[in-house]
Amino acid sequence: MAAPTALSFQDVWVEYGDKIVLEKVTLDVAEGSFVSIVGPSGAGKSTFLRLTLGQEAPSRGRVLLDGERLRAEPGPDRGVVFQRYSVFPHMSALDNVVFGLECARAPILGRLFGAARRAARDEAAAMLAQVGLTDALDVYPRELSGGMQQRLAIAQALIKRPRILLLDEPFGALDPGVRLDMHALITELWRDHGLTILMVTHDIKEAFKLGTRVLAFDKRRRDPQAPHRYGSTAVYDFPLDDKAPGAVPAELAPLAVVEE
């Protein structure tokens, strides 16, 4: 793949006091790739995601988005879907999506009026149609099922056309059948929109099924007396250009057992 680099981590460390969470993370994420991130609990997957999101700043090293240093603050160039609480309970499904447009187009009032409002609503409705929520424009999130809430959260993120879409265990709380539907949906959206996706997941099969590349985070070294002194890094990095289904490599099998 000769796609340009969208996101670049250069010798990134994250430390809290003397506790090292991530160490020596150096990797490039190509534009248009779907990177799955797996690893045991406490292996820094979430920290890695928060780093990309800007919720956290590296204590050493640099994170670059399109060659520029990332601001340590969430911004509209990086969309996110969390496992829960990604949608606003007080807005209807349509308003949840329109909100992203209003933030850009009405920075003072936070609301659009007249023709601008109609245009934004049409745009949002079209996005909701793409995730299969045409019939639920006016309902509040708590009236939606878990899968539909995640569809809404995806539509909400995509309306901003983010450079990177971050998924934090997005399907972890869903029923198996719903999860399969969501896999199909996210694959389709990834292809149609040419998205660059980073997805943290506990489900190793899901990681290999969806990703074009799988990163496994874990500690490279362990000190039994002071386990916090060594941080995690990407210990395995599998490119899956052929996207062979169900091919969980033998090295990762123990990891899969731990997580199930």
Partner: peptide, 18 residues
């Protein structure tokens, strides 16, 4: 309020005011 909501709003381009 869930931190997720506040982060999500920021990724949608919302300022502190919004």
């Amino acid at each position: 309020l869930p931190q997720e909501q506040l982060v999500k709003a920021q990724t949608l381009g919302a300022s502190t005011w919004l």
